[in-house]
Every structure is written in structure tokens, then in C-alpha cells.
Amino acid sequence: MGRPLLVVENLSAVITTGRGPLTAVDGVSLSLDRGEVLGIVGESGSGKSVLARTIMGLHCSDPRFALSGTVKLDGRDVLGLEPSQLRAMWGPEVGMVFQDPMTALNPVKRVGTHLVEAVRKHQQVTRRDAVGQALDLLDMVGIPDPRRRINQFPHQLSGGMRQRVVIAMALANRPKLLIADEPTTALDVTVQRQILDLLDRLRGELGMAVIMISHDLGVVAGRTDRVAVMYGGEIVETADARSLFDAPRHPYASALLAAIPSLKGAPHQRLAAIDGTPPDLVMPPSGCRFAARCDAVHDDCRVQPPQLIFDGTHGTACHYPVNPLISTASNTSGDT
């Protein structure tokens, strides 16, 4: 169906910090079709949030961020837009859901105000109509009794309810792309599922594309079309969800996968966090950034940085991949 909705090419974001320039995102390329769901997974500090915000253009006017590469959203060059053009795009083209619903809503504003101002910013409607839309939005995200909730303040809602409001706010102008930055990390386990199910349902109803960010592969399992694994500001593996879960090739992706208790190993088993710490992004190691923590490390890994090499649509940045081929052997549970 024509060109992809989002094309990111060789995107880098360098942040000026007290210790020197920090390369939070380093040469990331990806693309996303309309209605497609992309999962971005990586541990804390791997650059997921900076990537997401850079794609949206939220870092464009921040003098501390030096951006390079291109982001094309629906054919428009996001990084080249004027502030007013960006503001016109935030809402109707792309919306964002944040990690912590406790802090993503203004404590002094009523639930309704959050929605009404978003609606009226982009649509020429009367206040009355905007309130009507706000009620519909609350209903759409599964908040019971919207007429009561609309006049409440955020602190009067539970965490799950607030996240629903945040989602409603992001969807107020029916964006073509929704970026959900760890939308369930701050929530109770039981509520996490409900929010993920809600996002699934809304994506289907509204036909939007979604970028679902998480540090937990388990969250994106079964809910995404494609998955990109980030490490140290780079994408180290990207593939359609099926082949990534069945046959991860990068040792990091494979270790992340082993850490999901629900997929492998006994239930309730504490997830085996990967030993070691992520690389320092002010002074990244010269070779493979994962080398210090990699079981399969060879000498040349420390010298030669691996490039993202594609086999079909499955890309891996590793000199010694775990599952070099999409083999049937690794796929014992695979049925079609």
C-alpha cells in the first residue's frame, strides 16, 4: 500500500552533558507501515526514549541535542520542520503515551481539561462539542461513568485509570502513529495486561500504527508485527516478531528472551538478569558494545564493530550470531 508511514534513516542523537557528548541514539534505521506494530526492546538506558522522542521531533528545539539522519513521517521530514509545523503534527499525526501515568497528567487540571484542550488545539469545534468528544474518548478507553470522571482531578483516579486518560489524550486527534513509551512499566501486574489489551483493541479500531517500547520482551510478545532490539543506542537485531522469538540471532536478544519466565523455564522463576552493565555512551567501546557481557565474544569482536546485516527482513549486528540461519531445528514448537 505505497510508501511506509515512517522511515527513519541513520538517525543519531548526541546529548551535551557535563561529562561530554553522549550518543544516546547511534545510527538507527527503521521503517513502519500504516497500521503496523513495532516493538522496541532494550534495557534501561539503551536509548529507547530518546529515539522515540527524536522520531516525534520533541528534541528538535532543544539546544543540548544534536540530531542527524532523517525521519520521514508520512513523507514529511520531521527534523526539518519549524516549531509551529511540529506542533500542528503532534496530535493528529503522532501521539505519545508515557511511562508513568502518575506524572504524565497535570495535577492541577481536571481530566476533562486535558482532553478538551487537546481537541480544541487541532479542531475548530465549540467547547460543548469538545466536551462531547472528551466524553466519547473516555468511553473509548474503557473508563466507566465518564460524566463523573471528566470533572475529577488526576489524583482521584487509580494508576490504571490515569493511564487510560493518558491514552485518551494521545488519541484525541486520531494520530496515524502512536508511540507508547513503556506504557505499563509503572503499573500493577494485573493492570498491565488490561492496558496492553486496550492498546491492542484501539489499534484495531482506529487502524493506527504503533511503536511499543518496553524493556521486557514479554510485553511485546504476541502483540507486535516487528521487533527491534536496542543496545547501547544501536539496533542490534530487528526482525518480524515470529522469527525473532523463535530464532533470535544476537546473543543479547537471545539472553533477553531467556529472561522471560513465561516463555521459557518454570513459571514464577525470577528472571535471569544479564550480568554486567550497559556501555558508557559518552565513551562507548570501540568494537562491539556488547562484548563485555557476551558469552560468545571473540577477539575480533572487541576491535571490529559489527554492522546490522540483513538476511531477508531479519537484521543482526553480530559477528557470531546464535542462530545463523532460520533453521527448522531451533523451532520445535513451530506449527503453522
Binding site: 496530535g91 505519545m96 506524572t103 497535570n106 484542550e117
Partner: peptide, 26 residues
């Protein structure tokens, strides 16, 4: 620095609106 300021930007609100309507009171 608060998330709700970023959230307000991410839905397209202008700087003046954010300053007076979101940031001033808190």
C-alpha cells in the same frame, strides 16, 4: 522537567499555553 509538560507538548500545545496553563500554577 515534569512529564506532564512533555505530555502537553506532545499533544501540540504552544509554549505560551504551556507556561501559563500548565507550568505556572504548580
Amino acid at each position: 522537567q515534569e512529564d506532564y509538560i512533555l505530555a502537553a507538548r506532545a499533544k501540540g500545545m504552544g509554549t505560551v499555553h504551556i507556561m501559563f496553563s500548565d507550568a505556572l500554577r504548580p
